[in-house]
Write a protein that binds this DNA or RNA. Sequence first.
DNA 1: CGAAAAAGAACGAACATTCCTTTTTTAAGA
DNA 2: TCTTAAAAAAGGAATGTTCGTTCTTTTTCG
Lengths: 204, 204
Amino acid sequence: MARMPKEHLEARRRQILDAARHCFIRNGFHATSMQDVLTEAELSAGAVYRYFKSKDDIIAATAAEALAEVASAFEADDGARPPDLDNIVDLVLGVERPPLSGSQESAQLLVQVWSEALRSPSLCTKLREVMAEARGVVGGLVARHQQRGLLPADVPAEHVADVLMALVDGFLVRRAVYGHADSAAFRNGMRALMSAPAQATRQR
Amino acid sequence: MARMPKEHLEARRRQILDAARHCFIRNGFHATSMQDVLTEAELSAGAVYRYFKSKDDIIAATAAEALAEVASAFEADDGARPPDLDNIVDLVLGVERPPLSGSQESAQLLVQVWSEALRSPSLCTKLREVMAEARGVVGGLVARHQQRGLLPADVPAEHVADVLMALVDGFLVRRAVYGHADSAAFRNGMRALMSAPAQATRQR
DNA sequence: CGAAAAAGAACGAACATTCCTTTTTTAAGA
DNA sequence: TCTTAAAAAAGGAATGTTCGTTCTTTTTCG
């Protein structure tokens, strides 16, 4: 019998997923053809279809990895001492840190995942799960800030968490479209907003 | 000679674009087939191809309208008395106001436009132009706040504008994916963040 | 040697688009 | 006002291509 080392199976999957990721980032999920993926992976159709049963299967796996990247980026901050909130973008998208450090490419893929989630119920579910978990993590971070009097306590932590997560999403959009998306300037802007004199945010 | 009323030409274009918009929101630009659009518009291929020379043409027109919607949503705030910054999301995405009031559908289409811009250089250019203009408008709004002492003046207005626009983008993502995206809760979260005690945003 | 892996030709379905036909509409002529 | 001819619009079958996938063959390797 000739069974190949089990690690080679995983290596091939990796090779295919990496190639597909490249193609998807370059051209989107549905404007990318299987031939594009085959060429990029330098494999034949017969080879690829041994490891994935369909194109949708490859899309799902690629999207799942992108979401896992996001999830781990948020999880990494859990349990750590609460950092400054205006640094959250850096914390989640930080340049040197492993998660989401792929920079523009990861951001671009994530935008495609969002748009694919609009038409794929299963992906939408997964996306919501990841967002819900992240909301919990960030919400906990906010709550700790509130307990220390660093944030007003009369607003649900989840509401503040939603704003912070929207900031991250918005930053990702800019990074995906523009490429550069200066995180230092972004942090400056956040700091300015958060240090606004109290009268600027009057109740109504 | 038999020339039809010129208004009917525009009405047909509208009919086709409306149908296409529906399809694109439901299934994305590239997973939507021409047959889908023809069926939704209740027209034949021959009819549609009299008004648009290709599918890409329809995609471009749809995306252009989506971007125009965004542009007008930002422009509407220009010149007006400076509103509270924590209301910017409401101002731009307000429920009763004409622009972007399509709510979830507009948000979903915009996410698709973002992802299409990643593979279409011309759409990318247009998107950047719209964002640049909006940045100018919001930047001016921030500058006026700075002059009144409502915001720290030692940070470039554009940096603060970037943060505010990222907030809007992030809110759109949540509205597209979740549907509801409670803007009142969002505004509460923003207000909490902006009324953070000064020591929460220490320099480093 | 024999089984697993890869190759690549082959396949039917679906695609965007075109082309020819039919219907509708308008404007002029009787 | 009614008819008619020409032109525009719409219909829908046809076309050639490209797609995702399968199937058969060849290669590789334990």
